[in-house]
């Protein structure tokens, strides 16, 4: 398999198993792109993640597009975007049709209560891995912890936190 095809096949697989949203597949995606295949450096990967925090639009779809762009140019970027949302949207479309039919059944709430903790653990793992990516030092980890505290403890818009993080980085070189 050539490079773009391997990336796109892997993204399509991750799309199908990204329970809890796309952040839960970030650790796996990083291993595949940076570790297994060496297409991007750790810092390139972190840059793709950082850039999509700062621009509008469907950010996880954009992130995989930037990875695709660096692996195989614009066609790979577009194919990566399609592979990120295509399979999961097909699942959503089908699931929505069936879900309602079984809405009052007991097993549905059991499945939901069972799956929720696993997906939540995966989401937190995604954040943890992104916090440790590249050459993250103590200052950088302190910024991550502050962002967690402010998100949980205040009603401040995440946009301000992203802006403050960028400003701190520019001033202090985290």
């Amino acid at each position: 398999m050539n490079l773009p095809a391997a990336l796109i096949a892997h993204l399509a697989l991750l799309s199908l198993i990204s329970f809890g949203g796309f952040p839960s597949v970030l650790p796996d995606l990083r291993d595949f792109v940076v570790g297994t295949n060496g297409w991007l450096t750790d810092r390139d990967f972190a840059n793709c993640f950082a850039i999509v925090q700062a621009i509008p639009g469907p950010n996880m779809i954009l992130m995989t597009s930037f990875i695709g762009w660096q692996v195989g140019g614009l066609p790979t970027a577009i194919a990566s975007a399609l592979a990120t949302f295509g399979p999961s949207c097909a699942v959503a479309y089908t699931a929505f049709r069936f879900w309602d039919r079984f809405r009052d059944t007991a097993w549905q709430s059991i499945v939901r209560r069972g799956l929720a903790p696993v997906t939540i653990g995966l989401v937190i793992a995604g954040g943890y891995v992104m916090a440790r990516v590249g050459d993250a030092g103590w200052a950088s980890l302190a910024v991550t912890l502050a962002a967690i505290a402010l998100m949980l403890g205040t009603r401040i818009s995440p946009l301000w936190l992203v802006a403050a993080g960028g400003a701190l980085g520019a001033l202090g070189g985290l």
Partner: peptide, 14 residues
């Protein structure tokens, strides 16, 4: 971008 990435990770964990 380092700073933004650190905050982005925090937003996901939160």
């Amino acid at each position: 971008l380092h700073g933004v990435s650190a905050v982005g990770a925090g937003l996901i964990i939160a």
